[in-house]
Amino acid sequence: MQNPRLASRYAKSLVDLSSEKGQLEAVQADMQFLQQLAKTNPDVVALLKSPIVKPDKKQQILAAIFEGKLNTISAAFIRLLVAKGREGNLPEIAQEFGKQYDILKNISKVKITTAVPVDAAVLDMIKAKVQAGTDKKVSLEASVNPDLIGGFVLESNNNLYDSSVLRDLNDIKKQFAENIYVHNIR
Rank of each mutant, 00 (worst) to 15 (best):
N3M: 11
N3I: 02
A7M: 07
S8H: 13
L14I: 11
L17A: 03
S18D: 02
S19E: 14
K21M: 12
K21A: 12
G22T: 05
L24P: 01
V27A: 10
A29T: 15
A29N: 12
F33T: 05
L37W: 00
A38N: 04
T40E: 15
N41V: 09
N41M: 09
V45W: 05
L47H: 09
K49G: 10
S50L: 01
I52H: 00
V53I: 14
K57E: 05
K57T: 10
K58N: 09
Q59D: 13
I61A: 07
I61R: 07
L62S: 03
A63Y: 01
A64P: 12
I65K: 12
I65R: 13
F66K: 06
G68K: 14
N71I: 04
N71M: 08
T72I: 11
T72S: 13
I73L: 14
A75G: 10
F77R: 09
F77L: 12
I78V: 13
R79C: 00
R79T: 11
L81P: 10
A83Q: 15
K84V: 02
K84E: 03
G85N: 08
E87S: 05
L90S: 01
E92D: 07
A94P: 02
Q95Y: 12
E96W: 02
E96K: 15
Q100N: 02
D102N: 06
L104Y: 09
K105G: 02
N106A: 14
S108K: 15
T113P: 02
V116C: 06
V116H: 10
P117F: 08
P117V: 08
A121C: 03
D124V: 00
I126Y: 13
A128R: 14
K129Q: 15
K129W: 05
G133V: 05
K137Q: 15
K137M: 13
V138L: 04
V138P: 08
V138T: 01
V138I: 13
L140H: 06
E141W: 03
E141L: 13
A142F: 05
V144M: 12
N145A: 11
N145W: 08
P146H: 04
D147K: 14
D147C: 01
I149M: 15
I149P: 08
L154I: 03
L154A: 04
N157G: 15
L160D: 04
Y161L: 13
D162C: 06
S164P: 03
L166I: 00
L166C: 00
R167N: 07
L169I: 10
N170W: 01
I172V: 09
K173D: 03
Q175V: 00
F176C: 04
A177E: 11
A177C: 00
E178C: 05
E178W: 01
I180M: 01
I180F: 00
Y181F: 04
V182E: 07
V182L: 14
N184V: 04
I185Q: 10
R186H: 10
R186T: 10
